[in-house]
Design a protein around this nucleic acid. Structure first.
Lengths: 227, 227
DNA sequence: AGCAAAAGTTGCGTGCACGCAAGTTTGCGT
DNA sequence: ACGCAAACTTGCGTGCACGCAACTTTTGCT
């Protein structure tokens, strides 16, 4: 599961991927993110510029990838690691908080906030947790509703994205707004609030899954919507 | 709301925007989507190629925009048009179905499915409904939780996206999968299923909003957050 | 071991996105 | 009516993404 292609080939691929993203991060820190050309990153990693684009489809992606690294799979793994009796919503919230509040990369985040382009790329990167999350959610829901799992996973990604967005851009308070703006606290608080809005959906899905497993489920694809 | 800058300037801007996207669609239908250069679209619309990129940030965006047009604002308007006593979740589902199952653009959708690149652009375009939706949701929830509204709106967008994705790509059934694959019915069914997964979250949010309005929040802009 | 297919890398060419600095049009105040 | 400032367009230059067709490396098979 971890490395299905147990080959030397895959090793090299991961090696160059790591080399590329670390080179990208190092150069971005040294010169500032706007003074790094793709050619520089490729050269620093020892590959051709063309190869760079076989790994990353945009210039910012490499830099952002150095920060987010394998966060995608780690979030999913963190969810899978929780005991099965915990509410799925809680497991998700804790797993997300665990991965997004590590002080490990707070200095690198500073770099990202410098450039709006990097900021966008960083927010876009949260989409990467969708697929792993959909897998674990689907598993915990009994594999019955793949679409449901995908929707919920996408919802989580969207919530995380919204929280990060609000955290990165403190809404420039106009004086006469009338107090609409919530002070938008710390990142953990924002993440918690954002995910809390989805919690009822998870509870309902989990409950349905339990009901199905108690009754006799004849088709594991559960293709019978209430429609 | 409709035209805030009541000027001749804004009129011209919208005119060229429409000219661009219609030219893009026409050319794509005539020659096939891969044989349309940006320069061609610009020329057909009577502007310079550089101006094209002042309106659309990618080549596919113009073609897709011709299909989705002002769907963003229409979904939001459709939600706002429902009476206030309808469940928010239902209002949303109906509004989305109303806008995404119009036969108006089924032939144009055929064009989009031709090219994977256009497909991606089309899916990405669903993100555009987030902001208008967030506005109406926030309004219907009493304006108290902007973050919540944004999360829910993003969730709807994600659900729509997931449904469209599954609809556009029938999962190529491998014979030995074990019956996991749902036959992935019609688009309305998929949309309904996808949105149904989020319904509990909307119910909960709505209930909280009602509780708040019964207790002493008087101003309709809801300037008194629960902290 | 040897060989053929699969996977990966690289150079090249094309089209594209976008910053920048003119030049042009529109809106507004006086 | 006049003129200035803001907004929009356009040409140019640069860097980038990516398809394509060689070429090299890895792998599985015999």
């Amino acid at each position: 599961m971890t490395t299905r292609r147990t080959g030397l080939r895959e090793q090299k691929k991961q090696a160059t991927r790591v080399a590329l993203r670390e080179a990208a991060l190092r150069l971005a820190l040294e010169r500032g993110p706007d003074n790094v050309r793709v050619d520089d990153i490729a050269e620093a990693a020892g590959v051709s510029p063309r190869t760079y684009n076989n790994y990353f489809s945009s210039r910012e992606q490499a830099i952002v990838a150095a920060v987010t690294a394998e966060r995608e799979s780690r979030v999913a793994a963190a969810v899978a690691a929780r005991p099965a009796h915990v509410r799925l919503a809680d497991a998700l919230t804790e797993a997300v908080l665990e991965q997004y509040t590590e002080p490990r990369d707070h200095d690198k985040l500073l770099l990202i906030t410098t450039s709006p382009t990097l900021c966008d790329a960083f927010l876009d990167a949260t989409t990467a947790i969708e697929h792993p999350l959909a897998a674990v959610i689907d598993q915990r829901l009994g594999g019955a509703g793949t679409l449901t799992a995908r929707v919920l996973a996408a919802g989580v990604a969207a919530a995380v994205r919204a929280a990060l967005q609000q955290w990165l851009r403190p809404p420039a308070a106009p004086p006469a707004t009338g107090g609409l703006v919530v002070p938008s606290g710390s990142l953990p608080d924002l993440l918690r609030s954002a995910l809390a809005a989805l919690a009822p959906a998870f509870d309902a899905a989990e409950e349905q899954a339990q009901q199905r497993s108690h009754q006799g489920v004849r088709s594991p694809d559960g293709s019978d919507p209430a429609g």
